[in-house]
Design a protein around this nucleic acid. Structure first.
Lengths: 185, 185
DNA sequence: CCTTAATATAAGACTTGACATATATATTAC
DNA sequence: GTAATATATATGTCAAGTCTTATATTAAGG
């Protein structure tokens, strides 16, 4: 139910519509909690039903009406309660690691190609992370105090550290393959 | 559909029953692809229907009958085809990072408690990883050649590197909190 | 002029995975 | 003696997430 709490977290900054939230998710937390548009709307409906948020209809003439959601006291309590509780440990499924686990069934050439592809993608993600702070700043000005953006940047920092470690791992294995250190049988 | 291919991966070593596979999953790939018992059985049924595996019924007197599954040529083609294709990038959801992202809404004391809990858990996982090679060896003797177990250990190596990077990150933030380097507002 | 993108919300259908429960017998532990 | 554990497979149900499509208007680009 992290989506619920991520939404509450943003609404605790200020009121937003589902449309706003989708854009915010896509530029901030999508790297560790992507959210589908339809799921955001459905969750907003559910949270409203639970009394965690309150809907305010804003009528517009030239555009579709907006439904702006405000967090309630009950919602704030729910948010803080969840935040101060240990998070469920997310299983972290990795199809890539499944492929690595069984990689011995492929030829050396195929394995090398696979790991070089991994390394290529990891470098791409690291580059992408370098450009993120600017995108975060967009919302930092609207929503975030220095205290809040400190932790926004911390999540990015973890992403970089993790990705660097992954890249080192991939490069280490590539080196082993090239040196012929992978057992043949 | 990684579960399908992980099952095919194991059946390509040798035939197994659903019961066998559940135990194997729990001691090998569960750290990056946990599998529910009921899902394994249902997937075996589906793979058999698709012709990727073939069922052999082994009758037992004092115990329930076993259904042992053999990989077919079609299954082998499916496996290699998937292995040599780029894996779908798994979203890697992290409720913990959602909590970090919004941590600025908590007090310094609450934040410190949270990160120390993270660090504690990460150290626990690292210790757990140290004991894993012995458990892997159980199956390594039955199933794995040196070539195969080389990649088994590689997945563990990535887990360790990633977890070490995570721990360093948590410790870095704990130090920042203690030094009062988290903005107050 | 036509098409695409942006603004805005929502429902339908589907897949994956999680959790509980059912069934049946033999062995092990207390 | 009784309860728990191991062996072995299977169904029911639910939650979470993904993908597609529907609706309606305006502005911008080619």
């Amino acid at each position: 139910m992290s989506l619920d709490h991520a939404i509450l977290g943003f609404l605790n900054y200020q009121p937003f519509s589902g449309y706003d939230l989708k854009k915010i998710f896509d530029t901030t937390v999508r790297h560790f909690w992507p959210a589908d548009q339809s799921q955001i709307y459905r969750t907003l409906g559910r949270l409203a039903g639970q009394g965690c948020i309150r809907m305010e209809k804003i009528e517009q003439t030239s555009r579709p009406d907006r439904k702006v959601y405000h967090i309630t006291e009950a919602g704030r309590r729910e948010l803080v309660g969840w935040m101060t509780t240990a998070p469920p440990n997310d299983p972290a499924r990795s199809a890539a690691l499944v492929q690595v686990f069984f990689a011995g069934q492929l030829t050396d050439k195929q394995i090398l190609a696979k790991f070089e592809e991994f390394a290529f993608m990891m470098r791409g993600i690291l580059k992408l992370y370098d450009d993120l702070p600017e995108k975060l700043d967009e919302y930092a000005q609207v929503v975030g105090s220095p205290r809040e953006t400190f932790f926004w940047r911390s999540t990015l920092d973890l992403g970089k550290r993790t990705m660097r470690a992954n890249l080192e791992w991939a490069e280490h294995i590539i080196a082993q393959i090239k040196k012929g250190q992978v057992p043949r049988k």
